[in-house]
Design a protein around this nucleic acid. Structure first.
Lengths: 196, 196, 196, 196
DNA sequence: AATGAATGAGGATTCATTCAT
DNA sequence: GATGAATGAATCCTCATTCAT
């Protein structure tokens, strides 16, 4: 790779591995936007186009649609896990962070719905691990006497609230999410991204 | 059509107009099954095949996918409305009937979710009338002092519960629905179809 | 798209972008032939097949049937315009070139017919610009005292002659075109493609 | 057919053979309108619907599209033949009648175009007889010294004029037809239907 | 490592034609 | 004789995926 670095047709010169990381970031960002705007079934080419890369680059990074969805969600999940690591975290605070992500990402909402029979089964089964991580993070701060501490109540409550969060505008989504938690008689901390 | 005249016409003999009603029923039943098994985006041809009719028959009865979905839901909605007409109906009883339909029909569940951003929006907008009819039927029996009587709480609660009902088996779905109502601290009557 | 991922991808190896230009040319040539042989309403797939490419390639190059027709005609029109640029061009000479194209391309004939009520109107309206360019090129060399110089007479005459040019063999078409011009008492130069 | 005359599903009672003639007339009229409005490629069902009959009735009367087109044209052709029978008929007068039919019927225009390679070949070949009858009728009154009396000039001239007649409005069509005859330096009598 | 053209199967839709009633 | 529903092939168009450059 010393003299042949000009072998790419034309277009931007080979920028080496650094471009790979940049492309991946661009793709994830593009996927997040496009999934939010047009649903989880957009043509994959739309993601590549938005990211400004060729389609094959998308395939290099994500072997299929599922992987792209998972990559988008991974970021949300990781933030929630980080929030859980914070020693000062409370359950209500965790719910605030969770709610923030629910209002932020349409794909994330879908993640927290339980598996729907037959629908897009691929995506769900491969992202199940992610939703378990979310739940584990929340349980770290769930007081034993909390009204959601029994059995699957937490799982259920999250699914129920995420169902409520369906609105075109962000503000509306937040209002609905908070209303849903209130209906469940669950206290929620401030709705915010975790910033450390 | 270019120069080919006489395309076909063999196969199962034409059974005449009498088949029309039978076909429509078969199509609705097939649609209900197929939508439940494979989601609302199955190829329409799958419905026709399951019903044992040609594709054009499907188009004769349902001009588009939306119409097919609506036809499936119409039956559920009508039953709920009929239940509401019963003088002895109670709100808890209505919720039981609603819950029965939720556990019965995957498509019906989707109906009661609020519009999901970007998702095949056509279907929702054209079936909105149906979900309003469901809610109206329930409100007829909603006592003023009920905990869901304020604002959009009923709407929200229904959306939340329907989100909980996602399981491959019917029993599981019923359990989850009841758990969801319990979390909402709402009393529900026996889960059953309305039979007059 | 429901759950089927991984549709295909074998067959003749991808020849890369270099094929793009070659394919476009092949498509235009195929379209010219196929339109001539089977009319403007052939299945688009016939064009793709004749060109030896997949259907999507056709769609990449021509967004719809109109665009394919226009691409075929564009070449004819351009030649006529080039002929008009020649300083030594005469009106009779231009008519010869026009006549050559009439005898060469069935689609070109259709172009110069006025819009037929109800017929696949899309094609005509989007190719109207092309026929105007032909006429403009001819008018550049139309002497003021020519018998076709008044009003729409040129337009009419062209439409009339193109109507005469309907024969399966090329020789026959040329004969008929010349007979038509003679009936109109209009002198025509040698029937030939413009070669600069 | 005495006691069983009620055996048709329901709908209008069996009106016997008289209905057949009435239906045929309705079909021809409907076909004329529909062909004029939507071109020769309309779905045949549109003709049946416009005529107010079932589709099978159309098939009883016309075995295929060609037969329907021919039936429409037959009326025009017959009128021209009748005009030719009139002893007082002149060639110019015949052209006037011909022109009237050209402006009246889009399908008739097509009839008089020479065969276009490959396009709708079925229709043309089966209606060729009709155009020959038109020409024969005209030739009965063609003076030997007329400028169209040589060879195929009459055929050609008719094709050329019919090509000129392409306009959405009737008035416009008549103007264009007359302009075309003028360009051909041929005298035309009053444009009118032959009424005996 | 990136590009973007090509593949070709699959879903949607239309319509000529038949046939039970 | 008439009705009009059903058939199912054929066309259009879209996209996931590969691969020469």
């Amino acid at each position: 790779m010393t003299e042949d670095s000009g072998r790419h047709g034309r277009g931007r010169p080979n920028e080496g591995p650094k471009a790979a990381a940049r492309n991946r970031a661009a793709l994830v960002a593009a996927a997040r936007e496009v999934f939010a705007e047009r649903g989880l079934e957009v043509p994959l080419s739309a993601i590549a186009k938005r990211a400004g890369v060729g389609q094959a680059v998308l395939y290099r990074h994500f072997s299929d649609r599922t992987a792209a969805v998972a990559a988008v969600l991974e970021e949300n999940v990781r933030q929630i896990e980080q929030a859980a690591e914070d020693e000062r975290a409370t359950f209500a605070g965790m719910l605030g962070v969770l709610t923030w992500h629910l209002t932020d990402s349409a794909a994330f909402i879908g993640l927290l719905h339980a598996e729907r029979a037959g629908s897009r089964s691929g995506i769900r089964s491969q992202t199940l691990g992610l939703s378990e991580r979310v739940e584990r993070a929340l349980r770290q701060h769930l007081p034993p006497e909390h009204r959601l501490s029994a059995g699957d109540d937490l799982t259920l409550a999250i699914a129920m609230v995420s169902a409520a969060v369906t609105s075109p505008t962000r503000e509306e989504r937040e209002l609905r999410a908070l209303a849903a938690w209130r209906l469940l008689d669950v206290e929620v901390g401030p709705v915010r991204a975790f910033d450390g």
